[in-house]
Amino acid sequence: MTDKSGTMLYLNGVSVSFDGFKALNHLSIIVHPGEMLAIIGPNGAGKTTMMDIITGKTRPDDGEVYFDGRTDLTKLDEAQIANLGIGRKFQKPTVFESHTIWDNLVLALKRPRSVLAALLYSESPEDKARIEEILETVRLTARKDELAADLSHGQKQWLEIGMLLAQDPKLLLVDEPVAGMTDAETVETAKLLKQIARTRSVVVVEHDMSFVRELGTRVTCLAEGSVLAEGSLDQVSANPIVIERYLGR
C-alpha cells in the first residue's frame, strides 16, 4: 500500500478474529493530519473492533497499525497509546459518575500520569483556565460542580468530548457521538466536531446519515471487516454494493 510517512493513522491489512469469526478482514484505512474521516457501516462491520485495535484494547492477528507515520501501535498498551495522543470517546457515554464534571476534566487533562505526580498535583492557574475554556466549549460551565451522574445522556456525551479535548490528543476516535441526542444537539455536536477537526485528526463512527452529511467529510463504508467503499457521502451512498449491503437493508 502507500507509504505511511506523513499519515496520522495508518492501518494496513489488519485482520482479527474471535473464535473463528473474522471481525476484521484485511482492513486498510489511512487518516491524514488535520483530516476528519467518517466511518459508516452495518452492525458487526468491525467499527468498534477497529477502534479497539487502534487504542490497544485488542491485538490484531495480522497487519500493520501505525500512528503518526512511525509508531507501531500493536506493540503498545492502552495507556501508552492514550499518552501518545490518541483520544477515544466510547459509544456508551463513559464518564466517572461519582466525580464532579470538573474532576472528570481534571482527570483527563494532559498532565503527567505517574502515581507520584498525581499525588503531588495541585491545580495551576493555567490548568484552571484550560478547564474553564473546555467547559465553555461543551457548555457545562454552569454545572461544573455537579456529579457527572446527574447529567442527561446528551450532556454526558458532551462531557466525554470535553474530556477528549482536555487530553489534547492529535487523533480523536469518536464512536457514535450523537446517539440519543436531540436534533438540535446533533447539529451542535457536528459543529463542535468540525471545529475540533481544524487542528486535529478525527475519526467518527456514526449510523446517523444526516449527521454524517452535516459533517461533510470523506466517508468510508465498512462491511464484514473490510472497506466496502470510500469517497464523499454522495459517492458512497450511490455505490450499488453499499446500497445492497448497508443502506438498502
Binding site: T55, K57, D77, E78, A79, A82, N83, G87, R88, F90, T94, F96, E97, S98, H99, L107, A108, R113, V115, M163, Q167
Partner: peptide
C-alpha cells in the same frame, strides 16, 4: 475512584 468505577476507561485516558 475513577479506577474503581471504570478501570478500563482510566486506561484510555492514559492512566495506569
Amino acid at each position: 475512584v475513577a479506577v474503581r468505577d471504570g478501570e478500563s476507561r482510566t486506561r484510555f485516558l492514559g492512566w495506569r
